[in-house]
Design a protein around this nucleic acid. Structure first.
Lengths: 151, 151
DNA sequence: CTGCGACTTGGAATTATTCCAATTATCACT
DNA sequence: AGTGATAATTGGAATAATTCCAAGTCGCAG
């Protein structure tokens, strides 16, 4: 997918929600797509500033929230720390490597999702499931999945 | 399990970690066991104060952290909001009811856990898994599982 | 009974995020 | 092109949750 295709998809999605495509939203989305490493709002702010030096942190928060609303980005919360943002839209879990602090995306087979929904007692209707593994990932696993994280 | 048994278990666990059993720790643990509704630190603070009026919020945070370290309590983080605390030690997921704000514990069959571990690529070794459902729970599900939450 | 380390306390500091009021940009329509 | 109306951005102040820190207290080993 090319950059302009992304941008197209972005403005389309925004338009669908009755929202405008702005330079700020575009750059923020591009930044997320370019380095898919679950950055915090602060980190996004730092990266975006090289391209839009006058952008404000408030705008970064606003735009990220907007992207989340449009289902273009997922907000991810690990224990305590700040919210992180992830442009991977396929159903996936997160593996949080406790020794490196990095976060890896783990694809979720649909069978697992249906299996999980089965454990819900009657009357519970889940709209979304969030799964987080915590542990260690070996050196060699480094390049096996979409990944990366906060150094 | 009686109150004194709980207290016994508590001081035992603490001792195992080379820590002392203190009134503050005991009351906080008791409070969590009595109303198992995933309270925040603030809520715990409020409840504990009726018994120990001079306790400080810092101590509540310290003690909760201690209990988490000793594996007597689990810290639970839903998106953004403050950390909540849960004395249910059996493997379980959380169901977050978006309309009431309540949190329900959902028991996890061991088969599901092994299934989940199977989706991890080689080299990933998970020490823990956290699962959160988000959605709606119907009226009738109210009393089917251990539950409750922030009103 | 005394000293040492563990524990608690209050308040200050930090961090992440949200709020708000004032601009600025963009669109729809003339 | 001009003009409102509406949406978006901005900076700074405000809030919320948590952590930090220095001082005081407690309890047990010697």
């Amino acid at each position: 997918m090319t950059a302009s295709e992304n941008s197209e998809a972005l403005s389309q999605r925004l338009a669908d929600s009755g929202l405008r495509s702005t330079p700020q939203r575009e750059v923020i989305y591009t930044v997320l797509m370019k380095k898919r490493d679950h950055p915090t709002a602060d980190e996004v702010y730092a990266r975006v500033k090289t391209e839009l030096p006058t952008i404000s942190l408030a705008t970064v928060y606003n735009c990220l929230e907007t992207l989340v609303q449009c289902d273009l980005v997922r907000a991810v919360n690990f224990e305590r720390g700040p919210t992180r943002y992830c442009p991977n839209l396929r159903p996936h879990a997160h593996f949080h490597d406790e020794s490196t602090g990095r976060t890896h995306d783990i694809d979720l087979p649909p069978t697992v999702l249906t299996e999980l929904n089965r454990i819900l007692p009657q009357g519970f209707d889940a709209k979304s499931i969030e799964i987080t593994f915590r542990g260690q990932a070996s050196e060699s696993s480094e390049h096996r999945v979409a990944s990366s994280g906060h150094p």
